[in-house]
Design a binder for these strands. Structure first.
Lengths: 347, 347
DNA sequence: TTGAAAGCGTTACCAA
DNA sequence: TTGGTAACGCTTTCAA
């Protein structure tokens, strides 16, 4: 191995500074039983002050680190909560996880992160299996669309579940998110109210993004706005894809109006391309993004966007899970955090 | 609980679709011993084809998911590798973790992520303790500076360690990174070679960033370039901090030359502010970033930067750990992945 | 307030 | 190729 040799000589004497210090070692050193040490750690209020102090000293002296594998096995509580997101790399999900993680840390839980990528199905059964093997006490999912196999596995685990970033009347367990269809319609209404006649779309080929764009198109057409051009790009999105998206729209004849993007990243790419071409924003081409990513406004003050309350999603998902784990009643298993169109100088 | 009731009725009959399917259930259903099922899963080549098939069927039928907590406890191998980074949110670390994680997935390991934030010491003992409690088979650290307490704990765990994003001749175990001092000097040489006379610095108040800027300043002064102005901002950095950084430099009298930034994010902020003020880039003010973040070049083609090979850091860190875990000899425990100055139209 | 004994679900070790 | 038995390090349950 590394970092020191690992020879377990069979000395039963104090193994100070040894890697495999156990509860028993601490107990022996303290002169109490193992269960007392366990209590001192997990329920200090149930142990006499004097004992507690002696135990603490022994723990410090030996450098004891409780084995959570053993603890989890014995108690059937791993104190681990898993989160499956499409990409850690994606600012938007990273932030949700961060709030989620912080809310759980306070309650003594660690988060095990799983990356699903952007596959056809929203998760891989293999990933779910690997995660469930760790026996998490709860699980956060991104999206509400799961294959039959995945549903079966998730339900079979019999642990609290929370689906996020979308909404459904029939969640696996609980859900906290918003309606993608509603955001699509709201963006359409915004466009109509501003009097735009020509609309372009640059969207990621992502299930939820496509739902938004479809709702947008339907409503636009219902209001007589037709001929909307669309450029679809493969996730994960980046600025370059936004630039090429606008290029493509322009190639198709788009030269004025408003461009709707499925993420602020794409929107920034579109604006960068527009600027490079000397197109004035928002006068000639206005742009509306999605997500309200932190960097977006600093870069292009003229970017209107759909704000999603990521802290709320993370925090409320954590709350739901914790309530379920503690066996507390959950008043409402379906939480709509809504959204908000943030208008910035689209004149 | 949720997602189905959890009443363990004491029927010893097949518990198909029950949450707590164990190796024993599968064994009973197959008509073999538990250890045979265990082998079928972990060492399929050591089991007769017929047995294997029967076991597979039983596993499928019961929806058995191996309990990795129990497995880890018994085998003393958790198949978990931990990574401690300052912030998941930071593109640069997220990417490193992604490559690290993918390299390990192939070997059957999962990554447990820990966020240290940007504290005085590079990690918290509490975080390390929580992580070591899961008994990871290896651990990735960001940076090489650890408090005495942290060093003690890390070494005490007696597991393979890899420090990253920096270099030291005396690693805790292994290290893969680059010299921040050298990058500082290299940037100074670049500036000198380009003939810049006035230099501004916008840097995060981060240990490694400060090492770079100090090396930069020393070399600049050694070459007669003095009066360098510095604006220091608190991490995590964002575009807004970059903008205010340039504002501050300008307030101090900086109006032409080159601005050195401790991250591409800051650099983009500086360039955005410059553009907003009608300052031409790179003619009036050139900018040099750090990290070579993917979005940087798309946004401002004129941004010169220091490229850090994040895939290499992630992959090689994974390789080192896997070698150590397997007991393979590691030819060189100190890996310098170097860096490269990417010049983009700084004329 | 403390302790003894019996697991938790798996794998290591040694036999057959 | 398969199995019995004894851990792994902790917590639960019941008793004192």
């Amino acid at each position: 191995m590394s970092a020191g040799s690992n020879n377990n000589t069979e000395t039963t004497t104090s193994r100070i500074d040894d890697a495999s210090v156990t509860l028993e070692d601490v107990a022996r050193l303290t002169g109490v039983s193992t269960i007392t040490v366990s209590r001192a750690i997990n329920y200090p209020e149930k142990v006499a002050a004097k004992t507690l102090e002696k135990v603490s000293r022994a723990i410090k002296q030996t450098g004891y680190v409780p084995n959570l594998l053993a603890g989890g096995l014995a108690s059937r509580r791993s104190r681990l909560i898993a989160a499956i997101v499409p990409a850690i790399n994606n600012q938007v999900y990273a932030e949700t996880v961060q709030y989620f993680s912080n809310s759980l840390k306070a309650a003594g839980y660690q988060v095990l992160l799983g990356e699903s990528g952007y596959p056809r199905q929203d998760e891989h059964t293999q990933l779910i299996s690997a995660i469930l093997g760790r026996r998490p006490d709860g699980l956060l999912l991104t999206g509400v669309n799961h294959s039959a196999d995945c549903r079966r596995m998730l339900l079979g685990a019999k642990i609290p579940l929370v689906e996020t970033w979308d909404l459904t009347p029939t969640p696996l367990d609980t859900v906290v998110g918003f309606s993608h269809e509603k955001t699509g319609k709201a963006v359409a209404d915004y466009i109509i109210s501003k009097g735009f006649q020509r609309v372009g779309i640059v969207t990621a080929d992502d299930r939820r993004a496509l739902v938004r764009q479809k709702a947008l198109l339907n409503r636009l057409e219902a209001h007589g706005i037709t001929g909307t051009l669309t450029s679809t790009v493969a996730p994960p999105t980046n600025l370059g894809l936004g630039r090429s998206g606008l290029k493509q729209l322009i190639g198709q004849g788009f030269h004025e109006g408003i461009v709707v993007c499925s993420s602020d990243t794409l929107a920034n790419g579109v604006m960068t391309e527009a600027r490079a071409r000397g197109i004035s924003i928002p006068e000639q081409i206005a742009v509306i993004g999605f997500g309200d990513q932190s960097f977006a406004a600093d870069l292009y003050p003229a970017l209107t966007t759909v704000r999603i309350d990521r802290p709320a999603i993370g925090k409320r998902a954590a709350e739901l899970l914790l309530a379920r784990i503690d066996g507390r009643a959950v008043e409402e298993p379906v939480i709509d955090v809504g959204f908000e169109i943030i208008e910035r100088a689209t004149s």
